[in-house]
């Protein structure tokens, strides 16, 4: 079933991947955005988002995945996530303390738009973790390839 010089796995895997990869990405985004209400949050969601790209890379080979999210862009996103997290923490000085939850003293349970800075922190962590994990995976793959 596999064409000779085509990178990646067989047609079955590719078809399934094409169907599922978007869903995995969406699920990751859901976990991130509901991190303050349900189990999960920035780290878990970020890992799932990174896994969707890793999935793409495993099925279609590294070039397809790198076209969607290049290595340098992943590195940039990672640093931006960290800078964003730090600036959210810095904004807490508006209320007088580092890391203060400055625009909502107390969140409402079970409401998506509550909890002040926590959802933003989750998004920042998600960027950092997702891009970071993807970058780690890609750099390990590239290290291995140079060996051959």
């Amino acid at each position: 079933m596999k064409a000779k010089n085509e990178p990646g796995m067989t047609l079955i895997v590719k078809t399934i991947t094409r169907l599922t990869v978007g869903l995995i990405l969406l699920y990751g985004i859901y976990i991130v955005s509901h991190g303050h209400l349900s189990p999960g949050g920035g780290f878990a969601g970020g890992v799932i988002i990174a896994l969707s790209f890793v999935h793409l890379m495993l099925a279609f080979g590294k070039d397809v995945a790198l076209k969607k999210l290049s290595m340098s862009f992943a590195g940039l996103l990672e640093s931006m996530g960290a800078v964003m997290f730090l600036s959210i923490a810095l904004l807490g000085f508006m209320g007088g303390y580092f890391f203060l939850n400055f625009f909502s003293k107390k969140g409402l349970p079970f409401h998506l738009f509550s909890a002040g800075i926590i959802p933003f922190c989750n998004i920042a962590i998600c960027l950092k973790v997702g891009a970071g994990l993807f970058a780690i995976f890609v750099s390990l793959v590239l290290l291995y390839k140079t060996d051959e």
Partner: peptide, 21 residues
């Protein structure tokens, strides 16, 4: 008093900004 967390903010911020620029 507010100076205390800046030991971490300055060093971490510098690390991340260096990795961006």
């Amino acid at each position: 008093m507010t100076v205390v967390p800046f030991f971490i903010i300055v060093s971490l911020g510098a690390a991340f900004l260096i990795s961006v620029f």
